[in-house]
């Protein structure tokens, strides 16, 4: 497509933003436990659900990271959400269905999904 105006350039910029956004380390982070324990408990499915939900909502500025076992294997799959300036919330026994709620209510809405929380660190 030919860029004919500042507006056209902005459109391309907007649509290509996520080409590099993962490299700038988004302010909001989702961290999924991907140790052997996590994977055995279904962390892969949780990961897929996270990516699908973010994609569906068009959320591009979220960094999705993985981490190893943190020693709470019986609570896996674990999923942490860190919103800028807020404490790190750890959710346990997360299922793909929970992911939709966590992203909708907490990540976007700012309201922690209390019934799934197993820990909080500042």
């Amino acid at each position: 497509m030919k860029i004919k105006s500042l507006e056209d350039l902005r459109k391309i910029k907007e649509s290509s933003k996520d080409l590099t956004s993962a490299r700038s380390g988004g302010a909001t982070r989702v961290i999924i436990g991907m140790g052997t324990c996590g994977i055995a408990a279904g962390a892969r499915e949780v990961m897929t659900a996270v990516l699908e939900e973010l994609d569906k909502r068009g959320l591009r500025d979220v960094a999705v990271e993985t981490t190893g076992c943190i020693g709470m294997c019986q609570k896996e799959p674990l999923l942490d959400v860190i919103r800028p300036g807020e404490p790190r919330i750890t959710y346990g026994d997360v299922t793909p269905a929970d992911v939709v709620r966590i992203i909708g209510e907490h990540l976007v809405g700012g309201k922690v999904v209390e019934d799934k929380v197993i820990g909080q660190t500042d």
């Binding site: 860029i3 105006s5 350039l9 391309i12 910029k13 649509s15 290509s16 080409l19 590099t20």
Partner: peptide, 25 residues
Amino acid sequence: GYINPDNIEEYIARDGYVALAKALT
């Protein structure tokens, strides 16, 4: 080392050609 040099859209995503657009308009 940060963008794919063969992809103009990655350059645009990093504010590429904004200066040109600003100058011309």
